[in-house]
Design a protein around this nucleic acid. Sequence first.
RNA 1: CGGGGCGUAGCGCAGCCUGGUAGCGCGCCUGCUUCGGGAGCAGGAGGCCGGAGGUUCGAAUCCUCUCGCCCCGACCA
Length: 437
Amino acid sequence: MRLSRFFLPLLKENPAEAQIVSHRLMLRTGMIRQEAAGIYAWLPLGLKVLKKIEKIVEEEMTRAGAIQLLMPTLQLADLWRESGRYEDYGQEMLRIKDRHEREMLYGPTNEEMITEIFRGTVRSYKDLPLNLFHIQWKFRDEQRPRFGVMRGREFLMKDAYSFDIDEASARKAYNRMFAAYLNTFSRMGLKAVPMRADTGPIGGDLSHEFIILAETGESAVFCHKDLVDMPAPGNDVDWDNLEGVFQERTALYAATEEMHDPEAFAKIPEDKQLSARGIEVGHIFYFGEKYSKPMRAVVNGPDGEITVHMGSYGVGVSRLLGAIIEASHDEAGIIWPESVAPFEVAIINLRQGDTACDAACEKAYKALTAAGRDVLYHDSDERAGAKFAAMDLIGVPWQLIIGPKGLADGQVEIKNRATGERLTVPFDEALAQLSKA
RNA sequence: CGGGGCGUAGCGCAGCCUGGUAGCGCGCCUGCUUCGGGAGCAGGAGGCCGGAGGUUCGAAUCCUCUCGCCCCGACCA
């Protein structure tokens, strides 16, 4: 992409309404634009990152055996009356009437609807286990939206729902999501710590939140330090037997504020006690028959009717952008992990209009693009300093810097955004190096 | 939902107390110079002062109502 053809409305100054760094940077880099409290338009740069995150989530869910579908944003109130949650949910639920005065709602989550889909289509225990997920916009009419996309009213969420014949099998489904989440967040360059969590209004007795440690996190969290750097289990795991992975990650103390047990925490060796703030990016629940029973989600088993055991598993997809930025930025701007960066390489032409510079940049742009890299060519006639600042701000992982002085000797520079390291190398070598994914 | 605050140019703000028809910085446009970390000079465009009523000869400024947004707290993917 040539910057001159892209839509990238950068802001030099910080908008007054943004208090935390991720919100400020998302506004300044032109990723989002607020349209109402907690409601954002996704501008091209933000959308590119959102899509990359979405794709990683899809891939890891698929790897863990979940099947993707897509449910609507609008739901009938009657469906929620079946579970009793239409009354329970309160003001957070956005209620709407259609032209026929039918009561509807903008979905804050989809347990009822997925249960309805399941009970209407699945008849036999032989079709289980089953895990269905979708990635859809949701709306919760928060009393006080804040922190940009971290706590918006409209947000993009991945939610998966598992169906099993009994608790033992459901716990295996739970463990699969548990492992998948560790892999998912790891791919985004995040260190996510699973913590025992309150099940809240969704109910159930087994639940973990996946927490990213960040100073600006919304809640206080407490855990054993060793959990933070524990590597993700990876793809080479036995998806039917993950109890070991689960035990390994849950043996050490880790809890959010609501579930915090100061006594248990005090038993951790003092140098391993970690008291910090965290951002919740995922939440998994096992809730058994909470919805399947009142909504009659049953299958035929060998010995008669079985009420299915369910779990649900959420990932805050749009929230993850904020979380990643909170975890990865410096004074100059965002430092995107390569897996989710909006562009992989930025070409900075230090002397736009100079024949040699223009030609070299064009050649590099074509070569890298042909090699499959997502390249942003800063081809405006701004001064060098402005270009550096802009590319640092939007956080492209690699910068290919081409200027008249170096070019006279056939040299260009490669800069790593994360480390700040610069390497002067021959033009062809730079292309070869940056062509590698 | 309790408490506080703010709406004036694309962004950041001053002006309001003590009414006289709007200003600064950044950005934007033109030109010249400059050209390796957000350039300099000169010229220029852009605002029914969130909206509606009212008071007044006259309202960004005073009064009433309304809408929107932000912050602290309680609540939450």
